[in-house]
Amino acid sequence: MQTHAPPGAGSTPDRTGALPAESARRIYRDMLTARLLDTEAIALQRQGVFPAYVSLRGQEAAQVASAAALDRDRDFAFPTYREMAVALTLGVDMVGYLASHRALWHGGRYDPIASRFGSINAVVGGPVPHAVGWALGERLRGETGCAIAYFGDGASSQGDVHEALNFAGVFGSPVVFFCQNNRWALSVPNERQIAGGSIAARAAGYGMPGITVDGNDAAAVHNATRSALDRARSGGGPTLIEALTYRLAPHSTSDDTTRYRDRGEEHAWQERDPLPRLGTALEEAGHADTAFFEQIEDGARAAVERIRDGIATAPPPAGSDLFTYVYREPTEELARQQRLWREEVEP
């Protein structure tokens, strides 16, 4: 773990070392479930159930271990569109989550407020300022919740991410900016994306600590996120974490990585797959044995099966949903258009 502290900033409380057994086992379970669900989702795309899917394969540690550090009663996560394992960890209704990939509803069909997990958002920098606003709102009310904004190396180039970081720095908002640097923004590598080579290093310019962490090391991710949340919760302000990881799969099921990246690189990162890595660590620490792994895998497969069945049978949206949610207080004109739809379009 490397810290880019701003000049004069206080030191971050150190939380290094191995995870407590129970946390590690839970994180492993969610990572495995996410891996299996991710694999299933790709299969569902191949079968024509999903028009498209965006895999997070390889980023399970970055997502699960960071989300596991959140307080599900107080905190709020702002995702973009590749944070399926964050959703899973936070207990979001996964049938509702995958409804977005089945193209039943943009943004997913879960309640983002009740789930404390924002709607899926395809403008990758767009939700980052929302996290700052949410967190500021928490502090203004004198409450202790923190926001975490998930974004990637590609989004780090967007102006909104800069504006959000600067606002959070100025306001001292309780936000954790969690960048999953998976090295490829679709086909564009880090070298063509990040001037200066480090997203975390930018934190100094915003007056906040910047932490670079091995994103495939669940313990390191979890500890860094917990430290940042502790700091934010106690009034210490925001932190920028850059988790170095790798997108093992193509950008989406419509993508072809052979056009832009090297097979050798993919294989090298395959060797650093975070899932077996945590499994081995659990075994070596004596926190898990064969029976544990079998039990966890059975549970994960059963969970994935339930989600798969749920999404396969999820009803399409009602036609009237076209109009229902446009306004809280609908306009006469929209009501007129809805009547027109009913008369001329509704099946």
């Binding site: 606003g133 709102g137 926001a147 959000a164 606002f167």
Partner: peptide, 8 residues
């Protein structure tokens, strides 16, 4: 963006 997050 701040307003959107505050509204949420």
């Amino acid at each position: 963006g701040l307003a959107v997050g505050l509204a949420m």
